[in-house]
């Protein structure tokens, strides 16, 4: 599997999770969610500086959809980074001890993606999902969501990944 396919699958899962979170937390935003996703997907559009440098309030106000996309994306990145480091450690240990690689498992730490990216990402272990939920909620708080709503957002988003979009 190429890195591009894996990235596409990750993006699809993040969008699905964020859409579910918006449906739960802010159904009013559903009308513009696709616009938000388009902007989030396009790095060039993300770099466009928004107007607002005149007399402003000085505090950014983010849509729930934006927060969900960013929090879930950051959560994925964090979990995958942890898994990559753990995999690297195992590889180094095997190289030093000369031990044989273990048989393919369920990807408990997400470090060994199977051939099918959709299958790999949609069949995350409960441990990974728990870690993803915790990371997503934490990033949502950082982005300005109250803790209770951040927990709700993480539940909705990660639940959508676990159960599949409705």
């Amino acid at each position: 599997m190429s890195g591009t396919d894996f990235e596409a699958a990750r993006v699809a899962l993040v969008v699905a999770g964020a859409r579910r979170a918006v449906q739960v937390l802010a159904p009013d935003e559903a009308e513009v969610f696709d616009e938000v996703v388009d902007r989030w997907r396009s790095p060039a559009r993300r770099r466009v500086v928004a107007p607002g440098r005149a007399v402003g309030f000085g505090i950014d106000a983010l849509l729930v959809g934006e927060i969900a996309l960013q929090a879930l994306s950051a959560g994925f990145a964090e979990v995958l980074a942890v898994g990559t480091v753990a995999g690297g450690r195992r590889w180094w240990r095997r190289r030093r001890t000369g031990a044989a690689p273990p048989p393919p498992e369920d990807g408990a730490d997400g470090s060994t993606p199977p051939e099918d990216p959709d299958r790999q990402l949609s069949t995350l272990s409960p441990a990974v999902l728990a870690r993803l939920r915790e990371a997503t909620a934490r990033h949502a708080v950082t982005l300005g969501l109250p803790p209770d709503r951040a927990a709700l957002l993480a539940d909705a988003a990660v639940g959508a990944l676990h159960c599949g979009p409705e």
Binding site: V32, E35, V36, R39, R45, R46, V48, V49, A50, P51, G52, R53, A54, V55, G56, F57, G58, I59, D60, A61, L62, L63, E66
Partner: peptide
Amino acid sequence: PPPVRQPFTTGTVRGRPVVVLP
């Protein structure tokens, strides 16, 4: 809608001000 994330007011010197809300 996004990318506008900050409320602000703009307007010409003698014109009506425009309040833009995200």
